[in-house]
């Protein structure tokens, strides 16, 4: 178990390094190849020659890529100073970079935005797991019934709808026409009730898309599991049907659902960008979209890293959960 954990953590570290490398390539090599000076992409609005030169010094853009990478990693653990153009800017650990465009360190921006995106993602996950599992199990139990057909057609439709379209429709109908819920985001600390009211639509919209896939998956797995020997045994033992389903069948059904959940964290980030754009939620997605528009590379790098990290960690958690849910899985 311990060796497994260590091995996994090592894999996590490797993965993060690769991601940093990939982002570096995107923002340093491609522009170079296209003939754009990377320094100009880091300067803010005041892009005169002197400030570009200053940024070049500060980011050590003239140094080899490896040195730049080393400096970046160093910053994460011990913080770093950006010196150039006669001034020094300190960025305390954990330094995920410093935006010369907005003159602020990236880390506080991330810690400010991450909870918002997390609350969106987690809330939606709760909703979609509930919907997906319930619909999937019911469909499997009543296989071939009208309910099953309707539910599965609905699920297919759910997968086929762009989230920004459903989101806008939902906003138009529930927030503007019927005025049932708030159409804006309110921070939780300011007014929990309003926060909840503002998050309902984003949660449901996001859950609609993912829930549809989970319903299909749950149904398929459930059908398969119901045919297994041990279920027959359980029934033969005289266990009541709810116990058979709830205790035995559900356990096996949860395994692929969990796997999917792990994989989905990455996809969820993409959907969060779209959801946050549609509902004007000030989360990571909106921050990164703005950063991409502004070519605010340090922020993009920071967001990418933090999302990638959460994806990797989520996958780790999922793997560990296997052992809990399915006794057949042994970690080692």
């Amino acid at each position: 178990m311990l060796t497994y954990l260590i091995r996994r953590l090592f894999a996590v570290a490797v993965m993060l390094v690769v991601i940093i490398l990939a982002v570096f390539c995107i923002f340093f090599l491609i522009p170079k190849w296209a003939g754009i000076d990377p320094a100009t992409m880091f300067v803010g609005k005041q892009a005169d020659k002197a400030s570009i030169e200053g940024v070049r010094e500060k980011l050590q853009l003239d140094e080899p890529v490896l040195v730049q990478l080393f400096e970046f990693f160093k910053g994460i653990f011990v913080g770093r100073d950006y010196t150039g153009g006669g001034t020094t800017t300190h960025c305390a650990a954990p330094c995920f970079g410093y935006s010369f465009r907005t003159e602020q360190a990236i880390w506080p921006v991330l810690t400010d935005r991450l909870p918002v995106t997390l609350s969106l993602a987690l809330g939606a996950a709760v909703v979609w797991l509930f919907i997906g599992l319930t619909v999937g199990v019911l469909s499997a139990l009543k296989r071939g019934s009208l309910w099953d057909r309707l539910a599965m057609t609905g699920a297919l439709a759910g997968v086929s709808l762009p989230i920004y379209f459903t989101g806008l429709l939902a906003l138009a109908v529930f927030a503007y026409q019927l005025d049932l819920v708030s159409n804006t985001f309110t921070p939780f600390g300011e007014n929990p009730a309003k926060w909840f009211s503002g998050m309902i639509l984003p949660w449901i919209t996001l859950a609609f898309l993912f829930g549809a896939m989970y319903a299909r998956l749950t149904r398929a797995t459930m059908l398969e599991v119901m045919g297994e020997d041990y279920i027959r045994t359980a029934r033969a033992k005289g266990l009541r049907e709810p116990v058979v389903i709830g205790k035995h069948a559900m356990r096996s059904t949860m395994t692929p659902v969990l796997t999917l959940l792990g994989v989905d964290i990455g996809a969820l980030m993409g959907s969060a960008i779209l959801t946050e754009t549609t509902f004007s939620i000030p989360g990571l997605g909106q921050a990164v979209l703005k950063a991409i528009n502004d070519r605010d590379l340090p922020l993009i790098l920071g967001v990418t890293l933090i999302t990638a990290t959460s994806v990797v960690i989520a996958n780790l958690v999922v793997d560990l959960l296997y052992g809990v849910i399915d006794p057949r899985v042994r970690l080692g």
Binding site: T40, V43, G44, K45, Q46, A47, D48, I52, R101, N293, D294, R295
Partner: peptide, 12 residues
């Protein structure tokens, strides 16, 4: 082009 970068894009 990115409006915030105007000075270095069209201003150059």
């Amino acid at each position: 082009f990115d409006g915030a970068q105007g000075p270095s894009i069209v201003g150059n």
